[in-house]
């Protein structure tokens, strides 16, 4: 018998399930009132937690496919394994915690929620991240990321810790290209930046955010928080909130 009590987890075995079948099961479990769902044997099924709303906890063992948490609005998703592309696509609220590495365009167009990545991220992480009123998305990358980190960023915060770097230099180039809002905070240097951003010192509020995020990272994955917080950070912010302001002839 599958447990249905709210205090215990509702179990789903994803083995041999198609994407559609698996997501039907997840949605049904949520509709039935389950607050904690555990999915195991996940192997590439896409769109897990797509558009799911409310304070639901989804625990995933295996490797979820693309668009994990797309349009999600509230749940906490923990992945025990690597993630693939477009995690948290256009997410409104919630938390995604990845015990591993992730693919490209993580957090694309998200306007709220948190994404914690233990390891590395691919290209275009946080592309077109936004913010709105009380919503401010945050992406924390424990390792490093590839080019175009924070491209077109219009809001939110990306924190990249570089915990696995030996020389403190992230391979990423064109960081913050087209950025016109939000903040990128880096531990270490990047290979190159977009021409729309400039480097600043962290202020008190930034330090508070970094401390909060590192402590949370440490809670999820374990790291020497005090050691990390003791190192030097720098902040990238856009030169202008209107990078395309002076283009047209009316």
């Amino acid at each position: 018998m599958e447990p249905k009590n709210n205090r215990s987890k509702f179990m789903i075995d994803a083995k041999n399930l198609t994407t559609r079948k698996l997501n039907e099961k997840v949605r049904k479990a949520v509709r039935d009132g389950n607050k904690q769902i555990a999915i195991h044997n996940v192997m590439g099924q896409r769109y897990i937690a797509a558009g799911i709303q409310g304070l639901i906890e989804i625990d995933i063992t295996g490797i979820p496919g693309n668009d994990l948490g797309v349009f999600m609005d509230g749940p906490k998703v923990v992945v025990h394994g690597n993630g693939q592309d477009v995690i948290g696509n256009t997410m409104n609220a919630g938390e995604i915690i990845i015990h591993g590495d992730v693919g490209d365009i993580t957090g694309m167009s998200a306007r709220g929620g948190k994404i914690y990545i233990q390891g590395n991220a691919g290209y275009r992480t946080g592309v077109h991240l936004k913010e709105y009123h009380g919503l401010r998305p945050i992406i924390v990358i424990g390792g490093t990321a590839q080019d175009f980190l924070g491209e077109y960023m219009a809001g939110g915060l990306i924190l990249m810790l570089g915990l696995n770097l030996s020389d403190g230099i992230h391979n990423a180039d064109y960081v913050g290209t087209g950025m016109h809002g939000g903040t990128i905070i880096l531990r270490g240097d990047v290979r190159g930046m977009g021409r729309e951003v400039e480097v600043h010192q962290l202020d008190q509020e930034d330090n508070r955010l970094v401390e909060q995020a590192v402590l949370e990272y440490s809670k999820h994955f374990g790291c020497r928080a005090d050691e990390v917080l003791g190192s030097k950070f720098k902040k990238l912010i856009p030169i202008s909130t209107r990078p395309y302001g002076n283009l047209y002839s009316y």
Partner: peptide
């Protein structure tokens, strides 16, 4: 989005670079 900020719609959708990617958004 906050009032007074530019609303930029990028030329491509950054999660669509192919028909397979389009299929992915259709199904999302």
């Amino acid at each position: 989005i906050p009032a007074g900020t530019d609303a930029i719609s990028p030329a491509p959708q950054h999660d669509i670079y192919s028909i397979e990617d389009l299929s992915q958004l259709v199904h999302a």
